[in-house]
Structures are given as C-alpha cells and as structure tokens.
Amino acid sequence: MIRSRKELTKAVLIVSPSIAAITVFVYGFILWSLRTSVSAWEGIRPNYTFVGLRNYARLFRSSRFQIDLWNTAYFTVFFIAVCIVFGFLLAYLINKQIRGEGFFRTVYMFPMALSFIVTGVLWRWVLNPTAGVNVLLAGLGLPSSWGWYTDTTRIGGFHLALISIIAAASWQFIGYTMAIYLAGLRSIPEQLLESARMDGANEFTIIRRIILPMLRPITLSAMIVLGHISLKIFDLVMAMTGRGPAFATDFPGVFMFETTFRGNRYGEGAAISTVMLLMVAVVIVPYLAYTFRKEHS
C-alpha cells in the first residue's frame, strides 16, 4: 500500500469532521454532564454552582434509586439468561437440517425489526390483567389471576412485575441470540461432531463438551450486547408500564428522564446518567480492549 505522508494527511483530513463531531458530542458532552452532576441546577435556569457530591449522595440514599439498581441487576441476569438459553436452543434445533428453516428463522427474528415502543404497547395489551393472557389461561382451566406488570409482590428484592418486562424484552431479542448462535454452529466442522458420535458420545455430551466450549466467544459477545441493552433500557418500560407500582418496573433510564425533563432537577438527573455511563463502561471498555487486542494479534 502506498503510504506517502501526503496521502495520510489527506486521510486524516477526511475523517477530521467526524473526529471533531464525536469529540464534542460524545466526550465534550460527557464532561459537561459530569459538571452538571456536581452542580446545584434544579429549576428552569441553568445553575452551575458547585455542590460537590451532594446529588450523588441524595441519589444513593433515595429508595427509588436503590430499587432501580436492584431492578437493573435482576432484569439483566434474567434477560440475558432467557435469551441465551432459548436462543441457543432454537439455533441448535434449526441447525438440524429441518424443512422450512427459512420460515422458522423469519418468525423468530421478526421482532428485531420492531421498535421497543411497538413491543411495549403490544405487550401491555397482551399481559393486561383483565384481558390478555389471563383470559387464555382461564379458558384452559389454568390459574388465571396473575397481576403481571401490576403485581406488587417482591421476593428477595425481585419484583414479580419485572417478569412481564423480561418476557417482552426476551420476545424481541431471542431471535437475535438465535441468529448469532446459528452462525456459530454453522462454523463448527461437521467431522468433529461426527467423530464424537462415532466415539459413542450422546447429544448432551456433544453439546456440553464440544459445541458450547466452541461457542464461548459468541456467548460472551451475546452477553455483552444483551447486557448493555438491559443497562440502558428505557423505551420498552416507558411504553409498557412506566415506573410501575412501587417502582416495580423502574430503571435508571426512566428515573433519569423523569427527574431531568419532567422534574427539572438537572443536577440529580446528570448524576443518574453518570452512574449509568459507569455501569455500561464497566462492561464495554474491557470488551473493546479485548476485541482490538484480538484484532491486532
């Protein structure tokens, strides 16, 4: 490749508007947010009087934010688990040279095309306690008085109402998880599995000993992708339940939006956003570093 100095300068010149834009709109704004989060700004007029960590202290003392963090933790764990288990299951089954594979794939993945808002509006109707799934369950003679997203029961910090959000979010993302597992499964050489079968290994052993270990990088990236979606979750909750009874379905994203743009408490809103950024960074920065190192080696 020709790498004359002149040509490289041109290259830099071409990407410089983007670099400038990202510098300002991402890094500049993050710093500005950080500054806001240690300011006294509460009300319509900006007020950047420095108040130290007061907003953070208030935040971590408030019951609502503590609930939000618990909700985020539980939601993240269950959402990832459900997507990975069922995503893998479907990919594994579809990979069995079945007829109508295209149809199944299309059906499982179409929710990916929808907005979280559409999903939320739809699932709020599907899980409506007086209509919805309960009616269907009653028709089948099953227990049918579930509160779904209106349920206020809390077991060990887990709000049962979260199940509804997990169901809707998983409905949307199982297809994606399936797709990346399917791509992974297709890259496993058939001879490898064949020779294992020759050795008398049964299907479960093959899955456990060969397939899953080979798919570990895919599981990792699925966890990263799904995890950082769940840390940022906002749209689905807004459309489906809002903060929910006793904040059963409240998340930092919702709290931040309401605090800042409905309550005009900018300092605290910025503090929430900083906490969100840190949570995501903890997941993403090592992942980015790992990916780039891998690419180089």
Binding site: G43, S63, R64, T152, R154, P245, A246, F247, N264
Partner: peptide
C-alpha cells in the same frame, strides 16, 4: 413545588407497597 410533589409521589409509591 413541582419538584417536591414528584418526590412525594415517589415516596407514596414505595410506602403503599412496603
């Protein structure tokens, strides 16, 4: 004030449950 009311709403929402 609006800020106060929204935070009262928050506390009530929790009180009713716990």
């Amino acid at each position: 004030s609006e800020s106060w009311v929204t935070r009262i709403n928050d506390v009530v929402n929790i009180l009713v449950n716990n």
